[in-house]
């Protein structure tokens, strides 16, 4: 029971977006994916979610090749939050969450119970009847998280389920970032496997069981935070010099970038009169 990528590569007209990637995620664990902009994180998530077929290698979900699943069966064991969830028509938040579970076979009262739980978990139950379009970016993101969780919970019948999240906390304030990641950790301990793309290395090392670092479509580091978040890997993946210190409470590695950019090294001369 796990989600396994074996030597996966994706190429679009001879250009490799990602290559040689072998990672896996088990139920109960959080795998964080970090890397610079354009490193191929979202492409990787597309492959994991079954949206993009790898041009090389294979993806298997609970020991069955991804290609053997229908859309409908996939929706029952994994739920995906992509970036940019646009909605053009006004819907109350409760109906946005309901969209995810209407293909299941819950009755309306059962649906309502599940929707309430999911909205409450991400702290947006008070927005249940508000128009989704009138919410702030962070509130929208939490409603979408509720939707994605509801989809998984509604279909989960003693099967290993997976949550695949592309930058789920990018619009959240500091408190909600911590809270949301804590919720994800709780969900993981309930037996869900979570793959999450993050930008904040410190949050990633605090909350993820494993971290995969991607640069230029290749894996440059994977393993437990203490083994991955090192000055060498950070320098390799992001090009910054960093001090690593352990968090006083959790002991997880914290990244403190060194101040290398003096004022002279960044010149915006073309904008000056």
């Amino acid at each position: 029971m796990s989600l396994v990528l074996n030597n996966v590569a994706v190429a679009v007209s001879d250009k490799h977006l990602i290559q040689d990637i072998s990672i896996s995620c088990e139920p109960g664990k959080i795998l964080g994916v970090v890397g610079e902009n354009g490193a191929g994180k979202s492409t990787l998530l597309n492959v994991i979610s079954g949206m993009t077929l790898p041009s090389q290698g294979s993806v298997s979900l609970n020991s069955k090749p991804m290609t053997n699943y229908s859309n409908k069966d996939l929706a029952k064991i994994r739920s995906v939050l992509p970036q940019g969830n646009e909605l053009t028509f006004p819907l109350p938040c409760v109906e946005v969450v309901r969209l995810a579970i209407q293909l299941g076979d819950l009755s309306i009262p059962e649906q309502n119970v599940l929707i309430q739980e999911c909205l409450a978990i991400f702290d947006v139950l008070h927005l249940a009847n508000q128009n989704y379009l009138s919410l702030s970016g962070g509130e929208k993101q939490r409603v979408q998280l509720s939707r994605v969780l509801a989809q998984l919970q509604c279909h989960r019948v003693r099967m290993a389920g997976y949550l695949l999240l592309d930058e789920p906390i990018s619009a959240l304030d500091v408190y909600q970032q911590y809270k949301t990641l804590a919720v994800l950790k709780q969900l993981a301990s309930d037996g869900i496997g979570i793959i999450v793309i993050l930008h904040d290395l410190n949050l990633a090392s605090m909350f993820c069981h494993h971290i995969a670092v991607i640069k230029g479509g290749r894996l440059v580091g994977k393993g437990e935070p203490a083994d991955v978040v090192t000055p060498a890997t950070i320098k390799d993946a992001f090009g910054i010099e960093a001090n690593i210190q352990n968090h006083p409470d959790t002991g997880t590695p914290m990244v403190l970038p060194k101040v290398t950019h003096s004022n002279e090294s960044i010149k915006i001369t073309s904008l000056l009169p």
Binding site: M51, N71, L74, A75, V80, N85, E86, Q151
Partner: peptide
């Protein structure tokens, strides 16, 4: 309404 990608992810 949630976009084609999300519809696909939802089955």
């Amino acid at each position: 309404l949630l976009g084609e990608a999300n519809a696909r992810f939802s089955g």
